[in-house]
Amino acid sequence: MQHLIKSWARARLQRWLAHRQPAANPVRLRHSYMFVLPTRFGVSVLLLLILLYVLGTNYQNNLILLLAYALLVLWLSCILLVFLQLHGRDLTGPPTVSCFAGEATTVSLSLTGPQPPGVLLARWWQPQCSWQMVPELTIQLELPTMQRGRYLLPRLALACEHPFGLMRCWVYLQLDSCFWVYPKPQLATTSTTNAVPPNDSNDEWLGLQRWTAGNSMRQINWKRYARDGQLRTHLFGDNATEQEIWLTLNPQLGNLETQLSDLTARVLLASQQQVMFGVRLANSELGPARGEQFVRQVLQELAVC
């Protein structure tokens, strides 16, 4: 019963928040979706000051009354002080986060504004996540493992109790960051370990290319450099028309997840070996191409397949 009420309240709050604070990146902490409520300690101090007021009234002791008033002022100002700790800051996250299923990944989020004197607490707004202290303005939070797919980052709960712990100010922030969980790469035993049949045409001369930092010094055309001072590098590689492989799901493997895992592993292999490759799926075809960008595109396709 309690669980039901809890989940209902959470869903309710989530809907309200989605309306109040739609996903954004960076997102500014505004008063319209910040919460400030007394902590348990705050409530106990409130009780204490009521008790002191009664005590001071009954003993007609002005000093006790003064103490009660001082605590009351402290209590009330804490509402504002704790609010100002978070208010007006911007939270920036990476535009996309990706990881393979079953793998934990750490997301790094940054908060603007002056260094808060106290500790901030952060967690993903999910039942199994616990609060973690954030000593600095960069928040390093581990994402919980998830099924493959495309998600929005979970709402980030950010809290602060700093000046005196009487009040707690917190927010649930929705960052507009994509969270890709790729299939877990796992090569089936039947698949070959090499994505590409071996060949020796790798050192066919393709032409000259302007040298950029990172290119091998050994392949620089020094003669040309001596002649006109321009750095050119020899370009070797396989012939694009000749070397091109197509990867598909292996239907011999059990269920779709295993097939996807196998395919992911082979895609990674292919990208490691820097071959031109294409992927054929049930109702789509990608490539052929190469490069990180393409691999990412393929993996994203596989994640939502």
């Binding site: 300690f41 106990s44 101090v45 204490l48 008790l51 002191l52 005590l55 001071g56 003993y59 002791n61 000093l63 006790i64 103490l67 009660a68 605590l71």
Partner: peptide, 13 residues
């Protein structure tokens, strides 16, 4: 901390 505050009030008595 809480009990200390209360005892301070007793000090005022």
């Amino acid at each position: 901390l809480w009990v200390h505050y209360f005892l301070l009030a007793c000090g005022f008595l």
